Simulated assay, not measured.
Amino acid sequence: MTTSAVFFRQPAWVRVVLATVFVTLVNSAALAAGCGPVFQSGRHDLKIMSDGVERSAVYFVPSAYDGKRKMPLVFDFHGSNSHPDGQMNRSHWDEIGEREGFIVIALQGSLDGSFKGAHAWNVPGVKPLPGVSEENGLDEEQFIRDAVAYAKETFCVDPTRIYATGYSGGGRMLSQFICNGNSEFAAAGFMMGLRAGYPEQEEGVWRPRPDTCKPARPISIIAFSGLKDDVNPFSGGGKPYWQYGGKVAVGRWAELNGCDMKPMTAEGEEISVSSYAGCKNGVGVMSYVIADAGHSWPSQKLLFQLASTDNQPSREVDATGRMWDFFQTSGGGLLAGQPGQAGCPTAKNASLDSTGGQGNTCNQPLGSASSEPAVVGDL
């Protein structure tokens, strides 16, 4: 006998009580998930208690937020000697969130930066930079976990579509957070800061130390690097926390995700992209290398052409928009679907001989990959 049959065989007063209890439980679950309350749209300051300490953050709510429809959420991690507002100004995740309909939260690292109002992350296994105070270094991993839990309880968010991105030191923090077995994020994006564990040297070659990166599960990764980055050099070297290069880090994540280790590539005069297929759980690993970019978030003038899909025609997006598109394809949820297409990188108004599908080559020489100037000392 079905549950519905049992229900309707009860006396009328019993059915009313059971229905009331059911509705109450459903409503309570919705409220507990943060659905119901409506928040003012725009960017706002936020305080979150973590390990007995009040921590700072900034959050953005799009105008489409109504407290009823569960929205995706993107965490945006600032670089060293920066802060949440500065990072959101750099990445403009709030602009993408307003257009696409999702919430953004930028957390603040616990270390004081080398100048007033600046902050840095207390990255596990990394000593603070010269001039950065260690006195207030806190447990950043606990803070991130608490922030995710707070967001789930406070806002109406889809728990399977919570993503994170990090710039420079924020990328290093995010990398180690995932390496240490935390599974809060469905996918992650990195700008000039992807790591895959602590660096170690073996027979004169630098590599990620295997025992310092043990993610809880396969996770989709997209990374952007600049060949003119003299802070976190793509080829390796640099500060003690860096050493192995960006290509090694991407390859290690492909290995950790169980991907085919021979990437498909698309190359242009100024930008190249590598995409690893066949990864476990349908996740994806993708790397963009920009020839003319230094240590900065790419300018909104630098666009990436995406191939057409059943839902949308081919279009151009900037680096932040490219991350968002990647999250919706390779990182669509905790159990992701098929990896997304690589997309051909292109300078604005350049024409291409290919639609830029995965594994194709961009035959048209690309224009200058200009970047916004980096903030001095922002690592």
Rank of each mutant, 00 (worst) to 15 (best):
G197Y: 05
L174W: 00
N232C: 13
S225F: 14
K228L: 15
A216S: 08
F177G: 11
S175E: 04
W206G: 01
P210V: 04
R217E: 02
A188F: 01
S225K: 07
N232S: 14
T160D: 13
I219S: 08
E203I: 03
K214C: 05
E200P: 08
N232H: 11
P218N: 05
A164C: 10
G197I: 09
E184H: 03
P215A: 05
S183A: 15
G171Q: 08
R207N: 03
A188N: 07
P218E: 15
G166K: 03
R217C: 01
A196Y: 01
T212N: 13
N180C: 03
V205D: 13
I178W: 06
P210G: 02
S220D: 09
W206Q: 03
C179L: 07
F185W: 03
P215K: 07
A164I: 13
I162L: 10
P218I: 06
G169Y: 06
F190L: 07
S235A: 14
A196T: 08
G197R: 03
I221D: 02
D158C: 07
Y163G: 04
A196D: 13
F234T: 15
P218D: 14
I219V: 15
Q201F: 02
P210C: 05
M192Q: 14
P208W: 02
P240Q: 10
R195A: 10
P159T: 07
R209A: 08
R195I: 04
G226Q: 06
E202Y: 03
Y167R: 00
P210Y: 05
Q201I: 04
F190I: 07
R195G: 09
I221W: 00
G226H: 07
Y163F: 15
A187G: 04
T160N: 14
E184G: 06
G236N: 10
C213L: 05
M191Q: 12
R217H: 11
Y198V: 06
A188G: 06
A164S: 10
G170C: 00
R161K: 12
N182Y: 12
G193P: 11
N180E: 13
R209W: 03
P199C: 01
A216M: 15
R217P: 00
S235M: 12
N232A: 14
C213F: 04
K228Y: 10
A216F: 05
L227M: 15
M173N: 00
P208R: 00
D229Y: 10
G204K: 15
E184N: 09
R161N: 02
V231D: 14
K239N: 14
A188I: 02
F224T: 13
A186W: 09
L194Y: 08
